[in-house]
Design a protein around this nucleic acid. Sequence first.
DNA 1: AACGAGGTCAACCGCGCGTCG
DNA 2: GCGACGCGCGGTTGACCTCGT
Length: 212
Amino acid sequence: METGKQKSSVEEELRRGPWTVEEDLILTNYISKHGEGRWNSLAKCAGLKRTGKSCRLRWLNYLRPDVRRGNITAEEQFLILELHSRWGNRWSKIAQHLPGRTDNEIKNYWRTRVQKHANQQWMPRLLERIRTAVDSSRAISNAHTTLTSSNDNSKFSLPHVPGCCNDYSDERDRAWVVEEEGWPEFPTPSDEGSMLAGLWELSAMGSNMYVE
DNA sequence: AACGAGGTCAACCGCGCGTCG
DNA sequence: GCGACGCGCGGTTGACCTCGT
C-alpha cells in the first residue's frame, strides 16, 4: 500500500519546470545512442529525473535536430489557415504538413495570433474562401510561388485564386455579401511580417472587390 | 524609470486510444 | 475479453517578455 510519505518522496525525485542545459545534453546524447521509444524507461535509463512524457515533449518540441525555429513564414501561415479550415484543431495532423514545425508551435501560433481575430466579421468568410480555393492544386502552386518569391510580405500579392476573395463571378453573390453582411471590418496590419500581412492582403483583395 | 497589460511560448495535465500480457 | 500500461493529442497554465503609459 502506498503511503502519502512514500508518494511525496517519489514526487520529490521528479523534476518539473524548465529544462536545464545539462538535462538537454543527457537526453540528446541518450537518444543519439539508443534512439527514441519507451519514454518512461528511457527517462530512467538516461538518469533523468523527469517523466517519460516530459522527455518526449522536450525532444519532439525542442531538441529534435529537424525542428525549425523562428517566425512562421507567410507560406506556412497560408497553409495553416487552409489546413485548419479543413481539419479543425487537429494540430498534429496539420504539423505533419509543415516540416520542422511542431503541433505545439502551430497550436500556440493559432491561439495567440489567429484565434483572437476569429470573431472578426471577415474571418469566417475568408477561411471558407481559402478552404474552397485550395481545393485546386493549381491555386496552391501559384500561391506558393508568389509567396516564396516575395521578399516583402507587406507587398506580396496572391494570384487570382478561383473561389477565393477576388472571385465573385456571380454578381448576385457579391450583392448578397454586401446586403447580408454589410461592409466588412478589416484589421490593421500592425506587423507586416505577421500572419495578418497575409490575411490583410487577402482581405484587401476582397475589399477592393466590394468597392470597384 | 517604474509599472501594468497584453502577448508569447515552453511545459504540464487529463483524456482517449492502442498494445500487450 | 479484459485490465494495465504507455503513448499521443488537444487544452490549459504560468513564467517570461514586450510595449505602452
